[in-house]
Design a protein around this nucleic acid. Structure first.
Length: 162
DNA sequence: GCCAACGTTGGC
DNA sequence: GCCAACGTTGGC
């Protein structure tokens, strides 16, 4: 029996790669994750068919902008082997890769950006959520089914309807 | 194994 | 551009 679909949130700086870029491309590999905790999730936990909130970071305003789906499970991030890549890591050996990535394709853009500010305002409803924990820097974050529902309900709510 | 120095993330 | 928070590195 297949395991139940899980949900994730993954951050990208829109200057580097935006949700619109993903829509244009039709599919992308989620390359360049260089953090062990996030790597472990990509390698071991993120599964085919899981759904992902595409989050724009380091922009104004930061927030969730779209949904995508995992179409390939964790496999070695080959940009780590490519000296020309900004993600090159000489310590990642093709025989024993240090970094992993998944492939995703777009599902739909959110009708509006669900901002970090709004998510923080819903902290009570969201419960423990790594995105809004103080000092959080994780770029691949687990989202529970309940949190997923809250966030998509926020999308439907008017932004002045808090 | 400790911890200071350093680099990065990411909101503001 | 600033800086707090955090992760990594490397000397000891």
């Amino acid at each position: 029996m297949p395991t139940r679909k899980r949900y994730w949130l993954m951050k990208s700086e829109p200057n580097t790669y935006s949700y619109a870029d993903l829509v244009r491309a039709g599919r992308t590999s989620w390359e360049g994750v260089r953090n062990y905790q996030a790597r472990n999730l990509l390698r071991d936990e993120v599964k085919l068919g899981d759904e992902v909130l595409f989050y724009h970071s380091s922009c104004d305003p930061p927030g969730a902008v779209g949904i995508c789906r995992v179409v390939r499970e964790g496999y070695p991030d080959h940009t780590a082997f490519d000296e020309a890549s900004p993600y090159y890591d000489e310590k990642s050996d093709p025989e024993k890769p240090r970094w992993y990535m998944v492939d995703v394709e777009p599902v739909r853009a959110l009708t509006r950006t669900v901002t970090l500010e709004e998510l923080k305002a819903q902290a009570k409803r969201l419960g423990d959520f790594a995105l809004i924990r103080k000092g959080n820097r994780l770029s691949v974050i687990p989202v529970s089914a309940a949190q997923w529902k809250v966030i998509l309900a926020l999308e439907q709510a008017r932004s002045d309807d808090t």
